[in-house]
Design a binder for these strands. Structure first.
Lengths: 173, 173
DNA sequence: TCACACTTTCATTAAAAACTGAAAATACCG
DNA sequence: CGGTATTTTCAGTTTTTAATGAAAGTGTGA
């Protein structure tokens, strides 16, 4: 029934499955995390049918999640000449993956949060002493903290891996 | 029907609702995020019934999520003398919130991931050249990256807010 | 030790999220 | 064009997750 897989492929299987579970804790759909794991460890780019077969999922599911990963800039589309299928290839460089995810999470999750905090702060800027004033202060504190975090992240994001490493070593040393 | 709320309470209402939606993107249950937002902006500790009423949720729901927040060390239980109810109070200091969340996410999400990567690397350490070797390398790269990240995080976590700020300023400057 | 105030649990229900499969749309090639 | 390979969409279904509400549990003080 199931073909005999080489040892490394068994480990890969395990990696894909478990990465999928871990993904859900991070708010990432199980299948999306699995496909990402699969492609990160793929010797060659894979097409939709490869992914469907490997994970035993429907075409629609494979398609949607592949395109979502492309939307996250974690996966790119490859075309081979003389073949009209699309192939998908994941970024494998860990530093680049980190940068990409940081950028996307900043855009999708941090920036909307900051917008909210600013709205709430603006609506209460004239509050005098008392609970209203404290609320305003809390919104500002959160906003300032996130702003600062974003600034740090932007700096790190713009660094080459080597410089970031060097800088971090200084912190640790 | 609904009592007239002061302006800051309207802003707070908005904050609670939106923070809840943002939470889901982070893989945090909506209600848990809402309760956290509510307590972070509460002038006084609140009891289970206060939370139920304010968010219009059931006792079981309020209870479970309050206890989960206590489990995350983001909320602590307060008792008032002559009153056998439990009151809940959220940490409001932004730096402390950050430290707490970092610690918990490390423990719950990063460490299991590293365990997986190490298992997969160990299972393939004898792979010669070829795809098996590359898989092994990928697992190691991911592991090393996370290990390094954890080291940096541990350093930051152990810092006082002021020293962290000073250090970050140097990076930005 | 009983009554009461409060907390905790959990089987059931509801809501949200993810997945399927097939039809529709698109792109390419002769 | 017309045929075919491939991609995309989406209504319907399944699965998973979260919420309810009532019953059981706990502890306290009279």
């Amino acid at each position: 029934m199931s073909k005999e897989l080489p040892e490394w492929e068994k480990a890969r299987e395990e990696f894909v499955v478990q990465w999928g579970s871990l993904g859900t804790q991070w708010g990432i759909p199980r299948t999306m995390a699995q496909i990402h794991a699969l492609l990160m460890t793929a010797p060659e780019p894979m097409c939709t049918d490869d992914v469907m077969e490997r994970l035993e999922i429907s075409r629609g599911n494979a398609h949607t999640n592949l395109k979502d990963l492309v939307g996250w800039n974690l996966v790119r589309i490859i075309t081979k000449k003389g073949d009209r299928k699309e192939y998908f290839e994941a970024e494998k460089d860990v530093w680049k993956i980190f940068i990409t995810i940081s950028k996307e999470r900043k855009r999708r999750e941090i920036e909307p949060a900051m917008q909210l905090l600013r709205d709430c702060a603006a609506r209460t800027k004239d509050e005098g002493a008392g609970p209203g004033r404290e609320f305003h202060q809390q919104m500002q504190d959160l906003d300032e903290f996130l702003s600062f975090g974003v600034k740090v992240a932007d700096t790190v994001i713009s660094m080459k891996h080597a410089s970031a490493l060097q800088w971090a070593m200084r912190l640790l040393g």
